[in-house]
Amino acid sequence: MTTRYLTKPVSTLRKSFTMDDMKGTTGIVPEDKCANTHATGDKIESVELRLNEDDVNGRSVELTSKKDSYVLMRDCNASTRLTAQHYLWKDLLGYLIHPDIPTGFDDLKIADVATGNGIWLHDVSRSKSTSAELHGFDISLDQVGPKAWLPANIRMHIWNIFDEPPPQFIGYFDIVHVRLITVVVKNNDPQPVLANLAKLLKPGGYLQWDEVDTISSSIKTVPGVSGSSLNKLYSQLKGNNTRDDTWVTLIEKSRVHTTDCHFSWKYRLTEILDENGFTGSLLYTYEYGHGLARLWNDIYVSTWKEFANNVLKTPRMSEDLERKGMEEARNGAAIMTPKLVWVTRKE
């Protein structure tokens, strides 16, 4: 089979290939502007992109992402959900950065991993001096605005959390923040992710890791109201609905884990942190009351809807389940999920 090597200007490459076209490829990013594509027949095997920070609308492409396995959406509705979700988290926690983490120096360097649309960094930037460096990392920056509209001290970078961090950021940050990456953790083992997060931190730097307690979640209702449809859709989102073979088959085909044992690492994370180069690890648990239950419930239904559209792809079944679930919510039922925050310091 013939092997072809193609050399094109970056602008031509970007018009010729999309990320969907290059799923499953790997790449590295040196500094000069060119792109080499290694193809066998019509199959792209690897892509070496050479871009600088201004080549992708002000976004730094440190490493070419591997296949994007994100199971939710990145459209305007998804970004709106991320923004609303951020402010609910902030209201519940009462902080952006945990008060145990020192932040009172001007040249603070902060990383937000799995930054999404960057809302957490935007909020942090309002209370930090312009000399502070705020860096967002994600496998996709489709939800982030252009560089010209970002605060001067925010920089965004494409990075796959399972790849080696860009060399210029190893041992660079005082604080690394990560939130809601449960779906990223593979084989019930957070250590590969943790190892790369640790590499970003300076010795003595702090990690703040925020998650939802999917195992302790429940459906709360006022007396006499059913929550069965909400329970079913949330079970689909968590990937543990074993009472409906149709859904289980779809979830398995989408390669989403199907039992709560996939999430049990959260109950061991404090010990895992202390056994892997961190010290003084503490877990904080937060629960919201019934007053905000409907707001949180709608966030989870919205998240499930993205999952259903992007992964399950059974619109009639999903529309019916959403209709029934939201009827239950209007009558007085809600998904209730505690929040977990780990704070730890790198040795």
Results as ranks from 00 to 15, higher is better:
266 K>V: 08
267 Y>D: 13
267 Y>A: 11
267 Y>L: 15
268 R>E: 10
269 L>R: 01
269 L>Y: 02
270 T>G: 00
270 T>D: 01
271 E>L: 04
272 I>G: 03
272 I>C: 04
273 L>K: 01
274 D>G: 01
274 D>E: 09
274 D>N: 11
275 E>F: 02
275 E>C: 09
276 N>T: 08
278 F>T: 02
278 F>I: 04
281 S>H: 05
281 S>L: 04
282 L>D: 07
282 L>H: 09
282 L>P: 02
283 L>D: 04
283 L>W: 01
283 L>S: 07
283 L>C: 12
283 L>N: 09
285 T>Y: 06
285 T>P: 05
285 T>K: 14
286 Y>W: 02
286 Y>V: 03
287 E>A: 13
289 G>M: 03
291 G>K: 07
291 G>L: 08
291 G>N: 08
291 G>A: 09
293 A>C: 03
293 A>Q: 05
293 A>D: 06
294 R>Y: 04
295 L>I: 08
296 W>A: 00
296 W>V: 04
298 D>Y: 15
299 I>C: 10
299 I>R: 09
300 Y>W: 14
300 Y>H: 12
300 Y>N: 06
300 Y>R: 03
301 V>Y: 04
302 S>A: 06
302 S>V: 01
302 S>D: 05
302 S>M: 03
302 S>F: 00
303 T>I: 14
303 T>Y: 06
304 W>L: 02
306 E>Y: 01
306 E>L: 01
307 F>A: 08
308 A>I: 02
308 A>C: 03
308 A>V: 02
309 N>M: 12
309 N>C: 09
311 V>Q: 15
311 V>F: 02
312 L>M: 09
312 L>D: 02
313 K>Q: 10
314 T>M: 10
314 T>D: 15
315 P>C: 01
315 P>H: 01
316 R>Q: 14
316 R>L: 10
316 R>E: 12
316 R>F: 08
316 R>I: 11
317 M>I: 08
318 S>W: 07
318 S>R: 06
318 S>E: 13
319 E>G: 10
319 E>Q: 11
319 E>Y: 03
319 E>S: 13
319 E>L: 07
320 D>V: 07
320 D>E: 15
320 D>R: 14
320 D>W: 06
321 L>A: 01
322 E>R: 12
322 E>V: 13
322 E>W: 07
323 R>N: 11
323 R>H: 12
324 K>E: 15
325 G>S: 15
325 G>I: 05
325 G>V: 08
325 G>P: 06
326 M>G: 07
326 M>I: 13
326 M>A: 11
327 E>H: 14
328 E>V: 06
328 E>K: 07
329 A>S: 12
330 R>T: 11
330 R>K: 15
330 R>N: 12
330 R>S: 11
332 G>Q: 04
333 A>D: 07
